[in-house]
């Protein structure tokens, strides 16, 4: 599974409150959530994000509240992959559960630039393109999580397999 997209860079400890502030949590409508992604932190995000874009961040991405509205808002806005140095536990589960893959890499954030167009092989974890002089390798996605991604999320996985 290969992905290709533009990079949006973020720092450490991006919490789910800044991804989707609580004042927008009075709905479960995915499109509506997508319209308010990073509403206050980066008001330009929803105007300029394109389907297929990739978020590259530092440590502990998605910390704080368990709101699944956060990965849903990112996915709805067009984000197709997040690469971070590390992810907070609940966000990690939530993102895979809705079919939004995550990759962990200590190096990518330090080596790519905002707006770079990078190519990522989800299976091998190989990342190339943009400001990268040579390929970087993210930690491979665990098999179980990869199967969920292939199905398009946990619900579809369960419907396909009859169990989980």
């Amino acid at each position: 599974m290969k992905l290709n997209g533009r990079v949006w860079k973020f720092n450490d400890n991006i919490d789910t409150d800044v991804i989707i502030p609580a004042s927008f949590l009075n709905t479960s409508d995915r499109e509506e959530l997508g319209r308010h992604c990073f509403a206050y932190l980066r008001p330009d995000f929803t105007r300029n994000v394109k389907t297929g874009d990739i978020i590259v961040a530092g440590r502990n991405f998605g910390c704080g509240s368990s709101r699944e509205h956060a990965p849903l808002a990112l996915k709805e806005a067009g984000v197709r992959l997040i690469i971070a140095k590390s992810f907070a536990r609940i966000f990690y589960r939530n993102a895979f559960n809705i079919g939004l893959p995550l990759l962990e890499s200590e190096e990518v954030q330090d080596r790519v630039s905002e707006g770079d167009r990078i190519s990522v092989d989800l299976l091998s974890g190989e990342i190339t393109g943009g400001s990268l002089e040579k390929a970087l390798f993210a930690r491979p996605i665990p098999d179980f999580m990869m199967e969920i991604v292939r199905s398009g999320g946990l619900v579809k996985y369960i419907k396909e397999k009859g169990t989980f």
Binding site: S66, I90, F164
Partner: peptide, 18 residues
Amino acid sequence: SGVGSTDLGVILSTGKIW
């Protein structure tokens, strides 16, 4: 332990979580 809504929806259906 806290989880998101998909995990909770699966628990409502199955009573189980990984």
